[in-house]
């Protein structure tokens, strides 16, 4: 589904060129559950942004179903995001003055789905992430885990082909992290490709494929047997008390 070939990306910090991605080759198939790992500054978030068309790249080719995405206008990339890509962010990025239901319905507004229909669908997706009774709450009235579920429902409502999650559990405690990962596993089982960025092995162990980035290059790419997110002890998840602080 997704083919990256020789992707390069640099940032300019004043006069210093920061070469963040140094030739990434990557294929992601439909319905895959991939974790991208790496240290701070390894380029994993940048790779995620390039994948999600939130940012452009300097060199190489990005193909989605064979179609080349290069130098897209903001309008065009907005349309593609609207049709194919869902996002989940570490800091949730819900619109603060909209209720949970309106937040979930927002992507459909931009796809011109009539109001009644999209609110109905939003209620369905909220129920799927277990928040049917929080529909009229504002984000600030929800816990972190609940906000992230709202964000996941919002990412899924437009039926994307791929869900991109940048540190989705980074601001959550271990139990909530498990729950979020369980939701993501659920999503993946329905055929949506899920790519998460994380620096935690415990989280990565709940996926099928782990890609390590080191200094903007893929250092390793291996498939694994995933662990279920719930009910099984996972080494490293509960044992580190400082993981929340470390994640932020």
């Amino acid at each position: 589904m997704i083919q990256l070939r020789g992707i390069h990306k640099s940032y300019w910090m004043g006069t210093n060129r920061l070469h963040v991605l140094r030739g990434i080759d990557l294929d992601i198939a439909p319905g895959e559950f991939v974790a991208i790992m790496g240290a701070s500054g390894s380029g994993k978030s940048t790779l995620m942004n390039v994948l999600g068309l939130l940012d452009n790249y300097d060199e190489g080719e990005y193909r989605f179903d064979g179609e080349l995405y290069r130098d897209l206008s903001e309008t065009r990339s907005a349309r593609i995001r609207s049709e194919r890509i869902g996002f989940v962010f570490q800091s949730f990025h819900l619109i603060p003055f909209k209720t949970a239901l309106s937040n979930v319905a927002l992507p459909l507004y931009y796809r011109k789905v009539p109001r009644r229909e999209r609110l109905g669908l939003a209620a369905e997706y909220l129920a799927r992430v277990g928040l049917a009774d929080r529909a009229t709450h504002l984000p600030r009235e929800l816990s972190g885990g609940q906000q992230q579920r709202v964000a996941i429902a919002r990412a899924l409502i437009s039926r994307p082909r791929i869900l991109l999650a940048d540190e989705p559990t980074g601001a959550l405690d271990s139990q909530t992290s498990r729950e979020i990962m369980a939701v993501l596993q659920d999503v993946q089982s329905e055929g949506v490709a899920v790519v998460i960025v994380t620096h935690e092995h415990a989280i990565a162990s709940m996926t099928d494929r782990v890609i390590h980035l080191v200094d903007g290059e893929i250092a390793s790419d291996r498939r694994q047997q995933r662990r279920p997110a719930l009910d099984v002890p996972i080494p490293g998840l509960e044992s580190t008390p400082s993981r929340i602080a470390a994640a932020s």
Partner: peptide
């Protein structure tokens, strides 16, 4: 600005 970023991430075109 951030709200605009969110809207764009979920599919808002610059025009909208």
């Amino acid at each position: 600005t951030r709200e605009i970023g969110i809207r764009k991430a979920v599919g808002a075109t610059p025009f909208s």
